[in-house]
Computed example of a mutant assay.
Amino acid sequence: MSRPTDERLLYLIKSRGPVTARDAGAALAMTPAGAQQWFAKLAEAGLVAPEDRRHGRGRPLRYWALTEHGHRRFPDRHSDLTLDMLASTRAVFGADGLERLIAHREAQTLSKYEAAMAGCATLQARVAKLAALRSAEGYMADWQRTDDGGFVLVENHCPICAAAAACQGLCRSELAIFRAVLGPGATVERTEHVLDGARRCAYAIGHASQPAEV
């Protein structure tokens, strides 16, 4: 069953960033006027807001972006419970106890990812599998090959954002997981970070002998 049009538009903005009605219409097989009508409805609901951008001379183009309310349509998994658990762990066991908890989660995740990547013989296959695993966990992940022979992995949603903001060791741990699971033949650098104000998290992945340019 296909998604309702409003959900498809919200998903499009979440995965691509702000879009024009023309871009949205082309992506979802509708007219620009039809997309504009849907954006007007979503704006009334407080889910999107317009951003007028000027490109050279002429009238500015109107882009539509998610509002904070719109971002909340993509859930932060069990955020309240997770925040309470992190606070309780820190209070009862201290910073060292919290680090042990993060290390335990890291080991479990790495084991699961490595098992899923059995048979992935190339770096490209491992990057593609990693993106699929992350998407299954709610990160809306995608990947592309770059002109220099490397790759870019992007995560358009962070389902643990509240927890990561409260405990940035989680982000450090996830970067370590990516480096470990992609193997010693790969370099991995985070180039965009939601907690630094970016729209998404992005990672430049290269071959160790030819690091990707960041």
Rank of each mutant, 00 (worst) to 15 (best):
T89E: 09
T89M: 08
R90G: 09
R90C: 03
A91S: 08
V92S: 04
G94C: 02
G94A: 13
G94L: 09
D96F: 05
G97P: 00
G97S: 10
G97I: 07
G97Q: 02
E99A: 09
I102M: 09
I102A: 02
R105Y: 14
A107I: 06
T109G: 06
T109C: 01
L110F: 03
S111K: 10
S111M: 13
Y113C: 10
E114F: 13
A116C: 13
M117R: 12
M117C: 07
M117K: 13
M117H: 06
A118I: 08
A118D: 13
G119S: 00
T122K: 02
L123W: 03
A125D: 14
A125L: 08
R126D: 01
V127D: 08
V127I: 05
A128K: 04
K129Y: 12
K129L: 09
K129T: 11
K129H: 12
K129D: 11
K129W: 03
A131I: 07
A131C: 05
A132M: 04
A132H: 07
L133N: 04
A136H: 14
E137I: 06
E137G: 01
G138A: 03
Y139T: 14
M140Q: 06
W143N: 15
W143Y: 15
T146A: 02
D147K: 08
G150D: 01
G150Q: 01
G150H: 01
F151S: 12
F151E: 05
F151I: 08
V152D: 02
V154K: 09
N156Y: 01
I160V: 03
A164W: 14
C167D: 12
C167M: 02
Q168I: 15
C171G: 04
R172D: 00
S173Q: 04
S173P: 00
E174K: 11
E174G: 01
I177E: 09
R179S: 07
A180I: 05
A180W: 04
A180M: 00
L182E: 03
L182R: 07
L182A: 04
G183P: 15
G183I: 13
G185T: 11
V188M: 00
E189C: 12
R190P: 00
R190T: 10
R190C: 03
E192C: 01
H193Q: 15
H193T: 15
L195E: 15
G197Q: 10
R199T: 11
C201E: 03
C201V: 10
Y203D: 11
Y203I: 02
Y203S: 06
I205G: 11
I205L: 06
G206H: 00
G206A: 05
H207L: 01
H207R: 10
A208S: 05
A208D: 13
A208W: 12
A208H: 02
